[in-house]
Each structure stands twice: as C-alpha cells, then as structure tokens.
Computed example of a mutant assay.
Amino acid sequence: MQSLFWTVEEVARRAKQFYENGIRQEVEHGDNIGKMITIDAETGEYGIDKSGIETAIKLKQKKPMARLFTMRIGYDVAVSFGHAPMNRTVE
C-alpha cells in the first residue's frame, strides 16, 4: 500500500499499532520518558530525540515520501507529520 494516499488518521493508527505491538516495550524506560519518538507508519522504523525534529529529518532524508507520526514517550499526546515541507506540520 502506498502511504501517499493515507489519511492523517490512518497514519496515526498504523504508527500507534507499531508502537503498541513492540516499540513500547523497547523504549518506555526512565531515560526516554518525555522524549519524542517519530515512527514511519509504513515500515515501523523509528527514532528518538528530545524534540522529534532531528529524527523526522533523518527519516525523511532516507525516505522522502515517508508518512511520519511523532508522539511523546510515556504520554498520550501526538503530532503527525505528513508529506509536506519540513517547516509545515500536517495535523
């Protein structure tokens, strides 16, 4: 399935599914609580950094059409970065 045609809700659903089905157990520990995790909703590849921006840039450099979802580790707040210039956020 091509991620280009996914809705924001589909990107969020798929990324959260990756998170719940394995990533959570790897990343939710003291050092990472409060940091941002950015997940490629198609592949499940992810990265962690303080703001989420560095990881989003790296993932977009590897795969420019990636549909990314960013959330704070240990919290229930999230933002979605769609196929848009890096200075715009698709919410």
Rank of each mutant, 00 (worst) to 15 (best):
V11W: 00
K58Y: 07
A66S: 15
R24M: 09
V79Y: 05
E9M: 09
I73V: 11
M71L: 13
E54R: 07
A78K: 05
D40L: 03
D40N: 10
D76A: 14
N32G: 02
K60E: 11
M71N: 01
D76H: 14
D40V: 02
Y19W: 10
V8K: 12
E54M: 08
Y75R: 09
G47M: 02
F81A: 03
I37G: 00
V8P: 05
G47R: 00
R13F: 08
R13P: 01
G74L: 06
D76G: 14
G34V: 04
I23S: 01
V27Q: 02
A15Y: 01
T55Q: 03
F69R: 00
R88D: 12
L68P: 05
H29S: 08
D49T: 06
T43S: 03
M65F: 11
R72I: 03
T7V: 10
T55P: 02
N32Y: 00
I57D: 04
Q61C: 11
V77T: 15
A15T: 04
N32E: 00
L4K: 13
M65V: 08
E42K: 05
H83C: 13
L59M: 15
G30V: 11
V27A: 06
S51I: 11
R88T: 12
F81I: 07
E45P: 00
T38L: 08
Q2C: 14
I39S: 01
G34M: 07
D76Y: 14
